[in-house]
Design a protein around this nucleic acid. Structure first.
Lengths: 151, 151
DNA sequence: TCTTATATTGCAACAAAGTTGCATGATGTG
DNA sequence: CACATCATGCAACTTTGTTGCAATATAAGA
């Protein structure tokens, strides 16, 4: 399991260090993006806050992870599924940001549609975020409603 | 010109105060969204920082302005063109974020296309941001290239 | 295996962004 | 004009992110 991360770091010519492997394993373990504060809490005090910021920055630049901002502007990070690299680092799937649990889902199968932009403007990347209620939170809400049927 | 802002505040049952009118006139004067730091600088020290935050929060809740996050997660604000209100506060046009000057343009004429989201998920709002180089910055770059033709 | 250049980390200190509680002051309605 | 309420200002604080520099770990070569 660790081998996967080690080869990922090697591929990008980054040294294999404990903090970096921790970050990768935390991000990989979840199916949603992880927020900066959560990451900081999960990684604990073994790794310095500054180190974490720097790791996230290099990972993003190398195309290992991508950053998505939630509705509050908080940074969230997820491992890139598609084969990103330094030069071609696109993250052209739609994201879903649940307004209840605040989780961000990468909808890998849903491509961002093309749009026409005004002449004179040149677009390099696009970002599509859908805000609403995720499956888990919908189900929880249903259960809650059902349990109060007698009212 | 002030009448416009005063009636806007009345419409939303907000008291007409000097700080609120300042915010409105600053936002209205520009064709791009204004960042929180810029707003703070422009409004000067006559208005307290905390007051500014609170004004922006109420304006957003009332549907007077909308918030757009730039690529760094910095909050930017623009006056809503469409007739938004507390209950129907949608901002369904595309935004363009220039990576050079960092300005955010509201592309009022360009609607956000619909997408299919996975079953179980319920979408309330969508957000579409295009990142690239705006017209002004493109022209500046051209001029720069031309002036260095002799090289 | 030892040495060494260099990438990476940790620490301290700081800057910026945003929040909370409370007292003061302005607004608008009767 | 009085008064309830909304809005602001101030102080203090939390969170998020950055910078410089010294200490340390990594990887590659002798």
């Amino acid at each position: 399991m660790n081998k996967e991360f080690i080869s990922l770091l090697e591929k990008h010519q980054l040294r294999k260090t404990a903090p970096r492997l921790s970050v990768l394993s935390i991000l990989k373990a979840k199916n949603t993006a992880t927020s900066q504060p959560d990451l900081e809490a999960m990684i604990g005090k073994d790794v310095d806050r500054v180190t974490l910021y720097r790791i996230l920055k290099t990972f993003e630049e190398k195309g290992i992870i991508h950053k998505i901002l939630d509705l509050n502007g908080t940074a969230n990070y997820a491992i890139c599924h598609s084969s990103c690299n330094e030069h071609d680092h696109k993250d052209n799937h739609v994201h879903f940001n649940c307004t209840v649990c605040l989780h961000i889902y990468c909808l890998d199968n849903i491509q961002i549609p093309d749009i026409k932009i005004p002449s004179g403007f040149v677009s390099h990347t696009t970002n599509f975020v859908s805000y609403g209620i995720c499956e888990k939170c919908s189900k929880k809400a249903e259960q809650y409603v059902n349990s109060n049927d007698e009212e």
